[in-house]
Design a binder for these strands. Structure first.
Lengths: 335, 335
DNA sequence: CCTCAGGCTGGAAACGTTTTCAGTTATACT
DNA sequence: AGTATAACTGAAAACGTTTCCAGCCTGAGG
């Protein structure tokens, strides 16, 4: 004898009654209600989510699939999902794509097998086709995750901020800037940003070239590579393609003895507490990922609750924050 | 007609057979096996985890309860749990205590309701009693989460590293150090570390006093408070109680124009990429939270799989990493 | 040719809920 | 007082699996 049946016996009623009073449904005499509540309390009864889910086809779980948990950037997003899910009584199942489209697919399948009530993603998945299949199979997918080219694309979100940053650089007299990304830039993010940056630079008459960061775990090699790149390209400013790349980049700069922002200005994509506290405080292009997660999750849960169709969500634009890591170049090139 | 039944019809067999071949059980003719596999594939069949869990009493979910998701410290832990869980076919349910014992309790209940196969925590919960109840109710709790006073306590893990840091400070000629924590130090972590630090300081003959960091979001006020505290106490070194506190602390130091490490040395609890790349690189006391998460999760899953009882796990000791944020005091106090 | 064994297969129960439907009792009218 | 209505309660079905058990069929050995 287990679960609800045990409570029923303890309270001297039927399981139907127990279910009703615990479910807050009407039609239960005060006497019975008291007895049931007491019994449930005494037995520490917690209805099995599996059984309930089976019956109701509602699991009260929202799934999150992140491309790569090792990237701290996703944490604010995760937290945003957490707070609204938790507030509305949902649990959160986190799956990690581990940078691999294959892993991502298998995780998607797992999420689907768990019949999560809704799925939210911080960015479009590597394999949109697969996701679309699951969606037609009934998976409720949050806003935008499928429509990369639309409002969600980085170009829409980070376009103007990127433009502002490049204008800033140009206005101060910079002429040649480097775009720092991993040597093997497999992330779609880096790629999209490269497009953004090169377009913006062209617009304001800045020369831009890619600078590969070697093995980020080896400060010495990073320093060497960086130094050469700066000299060879006579670059006076750097744009860091992703936030996690900033620490190794800064480490390399430090090891190479490059003065920041004197010898080289820096703008990095993504913000964080430490970026604001760095010496000098870093100029960044910031997205409010927490806010986005909150809105998106709220919206998908509302849709789940059957609220009317809402107009498509457009995430807030990123902003360019000027702090102290950008300065005029030491030797302005002649016009 | 749904789920397995649909597949069964499509393949022209009974649901029992479908279940068997999909479950990899023996006794299935090649012909049937092929048909079933094909049908399952065609229909994108994914068994409902709820139904399966109901029947097998295994949910293939491991729960993680973190005290506060906003603290980036937990991310490596989370990731550790993720990689081993994922590798062994488990999904991960993340619950956030949001710094509140009450929330934590309700989240624990939710986790229990979901019948997670195992629960792992980065640190003992605020209300061990409640957890213990759930444990007797059948929740499998990972190593150590319940026995705060034993091997898991911070004093066991961070004791010697703390000692090393204090000795280092003393050896360089420091006499008076400040312990920086939030004004309202509600976290048990800060408290435990204060005990640790004051004991270690006493042992090596260092004076130590608490320094409250005002509102971390206001760099000006932090700077002011810090400056006063340093002067009034004639402190020449600071220990930062928690990692998330370091950025505001550094920001304040910067705003106050305090030279690091010239005018003031600094040791912070917890490590991260940026701490190593800071200028100067920070001396830290580091725990390998990722490694701990991996071991702990592996162990609890092994236990779940019915492997023999293992000897209790003792997490690896923290280490004191000396980088460049500690230097001799500018004006060594007279002996 | 008959029997027996053993490999395959299907029927049906069970897992713990929620919910419908019908039944029972009490209450309020006429 | 009789009846209709409402309030409350319980029996039972259903959700989608897994698994036990029994039955069937095939092949082999006598």
């Amino acid at each position: 004898m287990t679960g609800i049946r045990l409570v029923a016996r303890e309270a001297g009623v039927s399981i139907a009654t127990v279910s009703r009073v615990l479910g807050g449904h009407p039609h239960a005499s005060d006497d019975v209600r008291r007895r049931v509540l007491a019994a449930a309390e005494r037995l520490h009864y917690q209805p099995s989510a599996a059984a309930r889910g089976l019956r109701t086809t509602r699991t009260m779980i929202v799934g999150v699939l992140v491309p790569n948990l090792a990237n701290p950037t996703v944490v604010p997003f995760l937290r945003g999902v957490q707070v609204v899910a938790q507030a509305q009584g949902y649990a959160v199942l986190v799956a990690d794509g581990q940078r691999s489209a294959a892993v991502e697919r298998s995780q998607l399948d797992r999420l689907y097998a768990q019949r999560v009530d809704a799925l939210v993603l911080p960015s479009p998945p590597g394999d949109p086709e697969h996701l679309r299949e699951l969606q037609t199979a009934g998976l409720l997918v949050a806003d935008g995750a499928l429509d990369a080219p639309a409002a969600w694309s980085l170009s829409a979100i980070e376009g103007t901020a990127t433009g502002a940053a490049c204008e800033h650089l140009a206005a101060l007299g910079h002429h040649r800037v480097g775009f720092v990304a991993r040597a093997t830039a497999r992330g779609s993010t880096s790629g999209a940003r490269w497009t953004l940056v090169s377009a913006a630079c062209r617009r304001v008459g800045l020369h831009v070239e890619r600078v590969a960061l070697g093995d980020p775990s080896n400060a010495g090699s990073v320093a060497l590579g960086l130094e050469q790149a700066l000299r060879r390209g006579s670059l006076t400013a750097l744009v860091c393609a992703t936030h996690p790349l900033a620490p190794p980049l800064l480490g390399g700069l430090g090891a190479a003895g490059v003065d920041l922002p004197g010898a080289c200005s820096l703008v990095v994509y993504g913000d964080s507490d430490w970026a604001a506290a760095y010496r000098p405080p870093l100029n960044v292009i910031r997205r409010d990922l927490f806010g986005v997660a909150v809105s998106v999750t709220e919206r998908v849960l509302a849709r789940l609750a059957g609220s009317a169709e809402l107009d498509p969500f457009s995430p807030p634009a990123a902003e360019y924050l000027v702090r102290r890591s950008v300065a005029p170049p030491r030797n302005p090139a002649p016009v």
